[in-house]
Amino acid sequence: MIYLELFWNFLQIGLLSIGGGYAALPLIQERVVENNHWLTMETFADLITISEMTPGPIAINSATFVGMQIAGIPGAIAATIGFVLPPFIIVITMAYFYNRFLSSIVMDGILMGIRPIVIALIGSAGLSITFTVLWNQSKLIGVINSFKDINIFSLVLFLGSIAFLRTFKPNPILVILGCGVLSVLCYILT
């Protein structure tokens, strides 16, 4: 049953996405794009773009979007409940024992071990998205094979955005909207 499948997959994503919004991205990519083929890599990249420009956490946005695309509104609700359930139980359990939890060596160890891995995971997802944007390929082999077909306009936007982000530390939405404005200008001019 599709609702149960959505619920079950997002439950697992909710259980292991430690470290906030971006940490859920690689897990969602694995479940939604690679394992179940619910979305293509391109739609997934669109989803992140939309998530960044609408309020609300990326993970909830993704759960709703994927659920909607696959099984309509009940699907969106099933996926969202699946994602929220594990943190709901864990947060409340931790609240009961919070003094013991926060200063325990086990908790310290878990966070210390997971943090670098989460960064690596986000990095990997970020690289796939960058490849998709610049070459329309999400894997390294595809990029090497079609290296010359790089999308120049996207490359300019990408490098410009990075330079802008690193120098001025603006709100990310401004950068994404800026790319949108340049895109529209370019469309009108050509």
Binding site: I129, L134, I162, V175
Partner: peptide, 16 residues
């Protein structure tokens, strides 16, 4: 438009 804004999104993630 979406495709071009993705370039900004990719940059944001790389920056983070």
């Amino acid at each position: 438009l979406l495709k071009d804004m993705q370039a900004g999104v990719a940059a944001v993630i790389v920056d983070v």
